Computed example of a mutant assay.
Amino acid sequence: MKPLLAGNDMGLMSEVGVPGVVDPGAELVVAAHKLGAKVKPLVGPVSILLGLMARELNGQRFAFQGYLPQGTRERTAKLKLLEAESKKLQQTQLWIETPYRTPC
């Protein structure tokens, strides 16, 4: 954060397309706010929203759940809970995954 404190503009790029959404960049944004820096978001293509727009899913009511648990039992339980919630609330459930977390 030294360059920011010295008055320099800084940028944060993310593979996700939106720094801070399921992204460790969120910690940098919080730190910048604590220093009183102006934070200006510039959004790139977000795979989660692009996927929602391309499917026949409810884009008016959805919940982003982040990552699912990695353990088989925990993941199955969470998916059952999300399915029930989706039916009850008529809500699309979105989550993200990466090949680095997916068991082979």
Rank of each mutant, 00 (worst) to 15 (best):
Leu94Ser: 03
Lys87Phe: 11
Tyr100Cys: 08
Glu74Gly: 15
Gln60His: 09
Leu49Glu: 00
Pro99Gln: 06
Lys38Gly: 02
Gly59Cys: 07
Lys88Arg: 15
Val29Asn: 01
Tyr67Leu: 13
Lys34Ala: 14
Lys40Tyr: 05
Thr72Asp: 14
Gly36Pro: 06
Glu74Pro: 03
Gln91Glu: 15
Leu81Ser: 14
Tyr100Thr: 02
Ala84Thr: 15
Asn58Lys: 08
Phe64Ile: 01
Ile48Ser: 13
Val43Arg: 06
Val46Phe: 13
Pro41Ile: 06
Gly66Phe: 03
Leu68Lys: 10
Gly66Ile: 01
Thr92Gly: 02
Pro99Trp: 07
Val29Lys: 06
Gly36Thr: 09
Leu82Gln: 04
Ser86Arg: 01
Gln65Tyr: 04
Phe62Gln: 11
Leu50Pro: 01
Pro45Glu: 03
Tyr67Pro: 13
Val29His: 02
Glu74His: 13
Thr76Val: 09
Trp95Asn: 14
Glu97Asn: 04
Ala84Val: 09
Glu56Gln: 13
Thr72Ser: 14
Ile48Gln: 01
Met53Asn: 04
Ile48Asn: 00
Gly66Ala: 06
Glu83Leu: 13
Leu79Gly: 05
Leu42Lys: 06
Gly71Met: 08
Pro69Gly: 12
Ala37Val: 05
Lys87Asp: 12
Gln60Phe: 01
Glu74Val: 03
Arg73Phe: 06
Arg75Val: 06
Val43Phe: 02
Gly66Thr: 07
Ser86Trp: 05
Ile96Val: 15
Thr98Val: 04
Tyr100Val: 07
Gly44Asp: 06
Lys80Met: 10
Val46Asp: 00
Lys78Asn: 07
Ala77Asn: 13
Thr98Cys: 05
Val29Gln: 10
Leu94Gly: 03
Ser86His: 08
Asn58Cys: 09
Pro99Thr: 08
Pro45Asp: 03
Gly71Cys: 03
Leu79Asp: 05
Met53Phe: 03
Gln70Val: 10
Leu81Trp: 06
Ile48Leu: 10
Gly44Tyr: 07
Arg73Ser: 12
Gly59Asp: 05
Ile48Tyr: 01
Val43Asn: 14
Glu74Phe: 09
Thr76Phe: 05
Glu83Phe: 07
Glu83Lys: 14
Lys38Arg: 15
Val29Asp: 10
Gly36Glu: 11
Gln91Pro: 09
Thr76Cys: 03
Arg75Pro: 12
Val46Thr: 01
Lys80Glu: 15
